[in-house]
Nucleic acid binder design. Structure first.
Lengths: 278, 278
DNA sequence: TCAATGCTGAAATCAAAAATTCAGAGGGGG
DNA sequence: CCCCCTCTGAATTTTTGATTTCAGCATTGA
């Protein structure tokens, strides 16, 4: 228990934590470790809890005082900058493989998330959500080889909060049928990332011809679909590996879901209620 | 002068500093920025100067108080951990709505990611990837209402790197057919999050009866499937909103894909190559 | 529905750290 | 060699922030 990292202790104590204490934990993990180095009052305010709760949280972690906890954070920080690579050899218990893989991967994913948030103008994001919330006309969804699952995920949620949601599947044979009802002003959300899908360009061009309002969710290298899109939301996906990471697109989809729900709460909540019961 | 880094200010002010103040500067630079985040007394002791000198030093740098100086250090630290492409776009917005929604959402998602990394033992993660890479026996995938798309995403990638990957769909009618070939030692990966899917428990129990090795990817509240699982990878999903966020599960899936690819590179790369060409 | 338990944050208390003061040390110039 | 000026850190004061307390609130279980 003594020599454990702060993040590790949060893990251990997780089940003991009360609701407000978890808020504190989340806040800290969200901007780690800086928030913990701030005075209690600021920590409290930033994480949406009271000072008292933060103190209780820290004490749950096993520190006997707040300054004690801060010292632990500083030590960790110091440790990390001393030995960039070998830091968590401390808890390198038993598994033979690369202990840090998950940590390292998650760090990169976080970088992509932050990068994406910076890449996407707030106004465009808001615009998309507002259009979805208005629920005028239909909303079509499509994705490429892998991103089709993102489209599916988004569709499954949007169906709950508004009517007129359809997914376009990839089969060229049925494309005509699927697009036949598209009207001017309908919304279309297309996911497309590198190794871009040619058929999506065709779909997009068809949608554009029918005056649909196309939103493109893509990677930093920009799918060619952007040519037809009214709004483009680019995400960072880079990874020093075989594959790119689409986690940022996924989180963007979830953000859209959350924001749209919020914007259309009055109607969406009723709708969801009736679906529950039905 | 205002927006300058602390280290930069030290450089600029260097000639103005007295002997003892330089000792303080040297100490801070020596373990930057940690020492500056400590209380004055400790800073003083560690750097071999008195508290008063440290305070004078800080004031020379242009900060109006010690806490003010510490805040600058924390801000710097936070800034540094932010992504390569950053703030310029962040504050460029002009939309009327909730400017910070996406930023805020992303911050929470990051918290969930970090929390998940802390929650998942490296050994279990490695174990799952190693089993996948071995490619002995078949690998079944299943998910619930929303998480089915995660299962699909994982499946689409795993198919590229190893044989014997199947997805179990939700229809009870075909369940018998799907499970008929399950053999002892086969791998099964099940996704299940809150509002847990009852049918998944049944599937899991059937799989367990056939001695499959069940891996469960779930949220912090633990799907009841855990009863049958050999390995559980829990992720943080909490959000102060209507829905939980599954971004951490998604990223975990991507991490599994990346790690498994790495572990089985010799065989996987050939396989992927032939799929490309075929 | 109502008690009981436990969680929560506002306010009061208390401790610690930051700021200030000042006597004396050190060092350079006369 | 001595005086004067500047720098320095111990001691003191003041301010800030950590801790505790407690009344109200929510949640759970009967």
């Amino acid at each position: 228990m003594e020599g454990k990292s702060v993040a590790g202790r949060i893990h251990d104590a997780n089940h003991r934590l009360t609701a407000a204490e978890k808020r504190a934990a989340r806040g800290l993990l969200g901007s780690y470790p800086t928030l913990g180095l701030a005075p209690v009052a600021e920590f409290a305010q930033q994480s949406g809890a009271s000072s008292a709760t933060v103190l209780r949280f820290v004490s749950q972690l096993g520190y006997k005082s707040y300054p004690d906890f801060q010292r632990a954070l500083r030590d960790e920080l110091e440790e990390r900058s001393k030995s960039p690579l070998q830091r968590s050899t401390a808890n390198a218990g038993k598994a033979g493989g690369d202990e840090h893989f998950l940590d390292h991967f998650v760090t990169q994913a976080i970088g992509n998330l932050r990068g994406s948030a910076a890449l996407i103008p707030a106004s465009e994001f808001e615009d998309v959500c507002a259009r979805l919330a208005e629920a005028k006309g239909a909303c079509y969804l499509a994705g490429g080889r892998f991103t089709d699952f993102l489209a599916g995920y988004l569709e499954a949620h949007l169906r709950l909060i508004r009517p007129g949601v359809r997914r376009l599947d990839g089969r060229p044979a049925t494309r005509g049928d699927q697009l036949i009802d598209v009207k001017a002003g309908d919304l279309a959300i297309i996911f497309d990332v590198r190794r871009y899908d040619e058929s999506l360009v065709e779909v997009a061009s068809e949608l554009a011809a029918r005056r649909a309002h196309i939103v493109l969710i893509t990677d930093e290298w920009m799918s060619p679909v952007s040519r037809f899109a009214k709004l483009v939301l680019p995400c960072r996906t880079s990874l020093e590996r075989t594959w790119d990471a689409n986690g940022a697109l996924f989180t963007l989809a979830e953000a859209i879901i959350a924001r749209t729900t919020e914007l259309s709460w009055a109607t969406a909540s009723k709708r969801m209620g009736s679906i529950e019961r039905g």
